[in-house]
């Protein structure tokens, strides 16, 4: 049925696997898992800000070491954690920063000369500052991504969601986020079924035009169905007592471990910003 089909189905499949895997890891026993999600989220955001504020490579390394340490004590599967960050990063950021390593973009001390034809005014070489700049950028992106992955892997997503409220995200928005996350799976299931039933009915090649038309009808159907479904959800909420006001029951409790972690992160960040930069 074509590339688009395989790619989309594969995409949906890997997303579902990722979600299930994340769910499992986030419910393991570990250090970060034991913390109050609100404290964890704020602390990790302070770290993220620091990562993006500092200039020196050393600062990034220090924070990354801290992240790895946290991952280990939180029984995050290391192989997955490293792969998730370092496997895809070179493809995107790596390609983007690649030209930086050459002298025509970043002049400076030559590390390795590639082409030198003085007669034609062509000189291509890899420079030390070029490599450093490129690596600095890649590393900054990698550490940022690591932090987010760490937060997601160590927190059940609904706790992560509820903890957004401490970041001044309005409660209504948090409820909408939760409901959206939920209905993504309902829609994905519908999509998967429609893809599979089309696949089973079709043999041989289908033109791109046909595929586009079919995809449009699929999206159109989803649109129409979404209207009906949102109306039904509204009724079912009403039926169970919803009257334009969402009530939640928060059971988070802070203890000394949370405060310790928070102050630890804060001290680390302040010191890095002040003394290492």
């Amino acid at each position: 049925m074509g590339k688009f089909f395989e790619k989309t189905v594969a995409g949906i499949g890997s997303l579902l696997l990722q979600v299930i895997f994340t769910q499992e890891v986030s419910q393991k026993k570990g250090y970060l898992q034991s913390l109050d999600p609100r404290v964890k989220v704020i602390s990790l955001i302070i770290l993220l800000l620091t990562v993006n504020l500092v200039h020196k490579f050393l600062s990034l390394v220090l924070i990354y070491v801290f992240i790895l340490f946290l991952a280990i004590v939180s029984s995050i599967p290391m192989k997955f954690f490293l792969k998730r960050v370092w496997l895809f990063l070179p493809f995107f950021t790596g390609i983007i920063v690649f030209p930086l390593i050459f002298n025509i973009v970043t002049p400076g001390t030559t590390l390795l000369e590639l082409v030198n034809l003085p007669a034609l005014h062509i000189n291509l070489s890899i420079t030390v500052p070029g490599l450093l700049t490129a690596f600095n950028i890649i590393f900054r992106v990698a550490v940022s991504v690591s932090l987010v992955v760490l937060a997601v892997l160590s927190t059940p997503w609904y706790d992560l969601l509820k903890s957004l409220q401490v970041l001044f995200v309005p409660q209504v928005f948090v409820v909408i986020l939760g409901m959206t996350y939920r209905y993504i799976f309902v829609l994905l299931q519908t999509v998967n079924n429609m893809f599979l039933s089309r696949k089973s009915r079709l043999a041989g090649r289908v033109s791109g035009r046909e595929n586009r038309k079919w995809l449009a009808s699929l999206i159109g159907t989803l649109f129409a169905r979404s209207f009906v479904q949102s109306e039904e959800i509204y009724l079912s909420m009403q039926s169970r007592g919803y009257r334009n006001k969402i009530v939640t029951l928060d059971s988070f409790k802070l203890d000394s471990h949370d405060l310790l972690f928070f102050s630890g992160c804060l001290i680390l960040c302040v010191n890095i910003i002040l003394f290492v930069k």
């Binding site: 939920r182 829609l187 791109g208 999206i219 949102s230 509204y234």
Partner: peptide, 29 residues
């Protein structure tokens, strides 16, 4: 009051559409 379920379901739809690979003329997606 209908806002919450409506926006939620359409956000989910938005997310799902962003996952689709669209077959383009010329064979790419």
């Amino acid at each position: 009051s209908r806002m919450i379920p409506l926006i939620s379901v359409f956000s989910a739809l938005s997310f799902v559409i962003m996952m689709f690979n669209i077959p383009l003329p010329g064979g790419t997606t």
